[in-house]
Amino acid sequence: MDSDVSSHVTDVSNLLYRHPELYEVVYDGANHAVARLAETILHDHLGRQPDSLLDIGCGTGRDLEYLAKHITDVAGVDHQQAMIDYARRRRPEIEFHVEDMRTLRLGRTFEAITCFGYALANVHANRDIDKVMATYASHSQPDTVLILEVIDPLRTDKLPRSFHIDIPDLRADAIAEYRHHPAQQLLERQRTWRRAQGLVHDHVNFRLLYPKELEYYLDNHHFEILGAYELPEKLNAASAFVAARYRGERS
């Protein structure tokens, strides 16, 4: 086991988390591709758009803002205080919470739950992944549709290697390097931003979940996998979007 890699929850150092306005520059949303795919998945399995939706790991709330155009009751949750502060300023009409996805309990259920942007990959230990699954279940009602964006472990070579910021106050470029830690099923990313003011280093570990492993966790909490999807635009070939339906009682 590599002693320098945490087995619990990721040790994140991320320029974009500290400056959410830059997050929306680097990840420009590509015409709301992820949110539009979610709409398609929800319509496929509900026959309509849901009346309520919880987005766990909502970041700046941009995807949730798009989905809220057709869903009356939405809520967003993120562990990063800066991201939620930014989301509340930019999207004051939406309900946002700063919470840990392992212990989140809002005391109500939703017809749909989304978890995009590799939020689940930021949880490393098996017991903590199980806690997140319990969170999904505790906010589900019969037939709730859950959509998870995960890294396809067989396509990590498709993850982005270069990043760019070009706005009036900042111009920066970054190169990302990835390293596998097979014993922990972790993918480590080191990203170095080059800007006029000097270098900035980012670091994150992603937990990789193989398909049958993810199915096992979901099944233990009464979710049935409905299918896997990709972005039509092939914007991120490393992403898989897994849809599941809740068949159990509330946790």
Score class of each variant (00 low, 15 high):
19 H>V: 05
9 V>K: 04
56 I>H: 02
42 L>G: 00
231 L>Q: 14
236 N>S: 08
202 D>N: 13
78 D>I: 01
5 V>Y: 01
121 A>N: 15
164 H>P: 00
186 L>S: 02
118 Y>L: 01
225 I>N: 06
64 L>N: 01
113 I>W: 05
84 I>C: 08
138 S>P: 01
160 P>S: 05
118 Y>Q: 03
12 V>M: 10
222 H>L: 10
196 A>M: 12
66 Y>M: 05
70 H>M: 08
154 L>R: 13
54 L>T: 00
129 I>Y: 04
246 Y>P: 00
199 L>T: 14
40 T>L: 13
164 H>A: 07
205 N>L: 12
198 G>F: 11
146 L>G: 05
105 R>D: 15
41 I>P: 00
103 T>S: 11
173 D>T: 13
195 R>S: 15
96 F>K: 09
207 R>L: 01
144 T>G: 03
198 G>T: 08
176 A>C: 07
209 L>I: 15
55 D>P: 11
232 P>I: 05
57 G>A: 12
26 V>L: 04
101 M>Q: 10
184 Q>R: 04
125 A>M: 05
145 V>Y: 06
236 N>L: 15
95 E>H: 09
51 D>H: 12
62 R>I: 09
242 V>S: 09
192 T>Q: 09
147 I>D: 00
64 L>W: 07
150 V>D: 03
209 L>M: 06
77 V>G: 03
62 R>D: 06
43 H>I: 08
7 S>T: 13
187 L>A: 02
221 H>S: 15
150 V>A: 02
42 L>H: 02
32 H>Q: 08
250 R>I: 07
243 A>N: 04
250 R>T: 08
63 D>G: 14
31 N>S: 14
173 D>R: 15
157 D>G: 05
104 L>P: 04
157 D>M: 06
114 T>Y: 14
213 E>W: 01
190 Q>C: 12
43 H>E: 06
178 Y>C: 03
188 E>F: 13
127 R>P: 04
28 D>H: 10
141 Q>F: 08
234 K>D: 12
112 A>L: 05
227 G>Y: 02
139 H>D: 11
224 E>G: 11
50 P>N: 11
229 Y>S: 05
219 D>P: 05
39 E>H: 11
76 G>Q: 12
59 G>Y: 01
10 T>E: 09
81 Q>K: 15
91 R>N: 13
224 E>Y: 11
224 E>P: 05
7 S>K: 02
238 A>G: 06
232 P>Q: 13
220 N>D: 07
131 K>G: 09
52 S>H: 11
14 N>F: 00
82 A>K: 03
89 R>F: 04
25 V>H: 03
140 S>H: 04
187 L>H: 02
23 Y>C: 02
239 S>I: 07
133 M>Y: 02
154 L>H: 02
73 D>T: 02
